[in-house]
Simulated assay, not measured.
Amino acid sequence: MGNPKGPLFPDEVILQILARLPVKSLFRFKSVCKAWCLLPSDGYFVTLFNQVSVKEQTLVAEVSDSSTLICVDNLRGVSEFSLEFLRDRVRIRASCNGLLCCASVPEKGVYYVCNPSTREFRMLPRSRERPVTRFYPDGEATLVGLACDVSKKGFYVVMAGYHRSFGHRPDGSFVCLVFDSESNKWRKFVSALEGCGGFTHMSKNQVVFVNGKLHWLMSGLCYVLALDLEHDVWRKVSLPDEISCGGNRVYLLELDGFLSVIQLSDVWMKIWKMRDYESEVWSVVDSISLRCIKGLVPGIFPICQTGEYVFLATHKQVLVYQRRSKLWKEMFSVKGSYSLPLWFSAHAFRSTIVPCNYAL
């Protein structure tokens, strides 16, 4: 038989294959030919790549004071990537659809939004709201959120907290600053959120962006606090009736584009999904036995999930639960005498080709 005269696969099939590669591999293959070199900047391919990538979740975690992060992938295992391109010592404050919002450790009030897959970043302009520490007692906002819709241009960064005069208790005014990447400016609005309650480290860490809104779980477990970014309005979203205020281990996550909560008991992990956002209708989509990891349950925290698997972190481990096979697997374990619990620095992450500098 002679050699085929045409290509082995149609162009569309090749694009579908390339869209399922890690971003790092995709950029490495740019040298194959001119057409592949142009792919990361081609609108059709970028849309295709992001549509495929948002269906998968990985877990990223900072395991030391260095700029190296570990990335745990359900299919590819464990890898590392670095934030050294920021040329600053940072910690991750929020993650959304491939972008990270990072705060400078040595210089309070300095924030970056970066895509670690493409190594592109953007330093945010300082807000003119100079008395920032008067309602952020530790020099940072109580809530930091990042919103990025891969089907649209740009992103938003949100910083919010109660206003307090120097040396006084919060006065009930909830101050919110919103950075719009397209205008490259901050806007501010103040809301009266009396009795809003507090936030734990985990509820601040697990901010969820769905339906054009950012969501945080209140520490009292009575409701979810949501910010409508289009109208600058806060909204309280009810939790399932079966989850009472207090006394539960409940965590707010995303599930394939929907708002979700995971409830933990000593022997069960129950996954809820909000099927109707406007009517606030929840339903149970899975109940998972924890008996085979019983010794780890008191210190285990769900970090991210899809319809296929759930990633959880303990003090030193990352576990994955495969929902179809109902199997548990240890994916990563911290070596040495690492002191901080791993879940303190673990975030949901997706690998996308979302740029940071649309408007620049």
Rank of each mutant, 00 (worst) to 15 (best):
I353C: 07
F332G: 00
M159D: 03
G307Q: 06
C292M: 12
E129G: 08
I293S: 06
C33G: 13
I293P: 03
I14Y: 12
Y223G: 04
L225I: 07
E140N: 11
L39H: 01
P137V: 07
V60N: 05
W328I: 13
T58F: 04
V13S: 14
S117V: 01
G6E: 15
Y277V: 00
F199S: 01
S260E: 05
Q317M: 12
G195R: 06
G145W: 01
F332K: 02
V52S: 07
L59Y: 04
G197Y: 02
G167P: 08
A61Q: 05
R87G: 10
C114I: 03
P10R: 03
Q322P: 00
F85N: 11
D11L: 14
V158C: 04
L227S: 03
I17W: 12
V297D: 04
N97R: 06
L227K: 03
L26S: 06
L100Y: 08
K270E: 10
V297G: 04
I293D: 02
W234I: 09
V175C: 05
V78W: 03
V190R: 05
C71D: 11
S265G: 13
A192L: 13
L15K: 15
K30C: 15
V267D: 06
E140S: 11
L264C: 10
L143V: 02
V208A: 00
K188P: 01
L217P: 02
R76W: 09
V261E: 07
A226T: 09
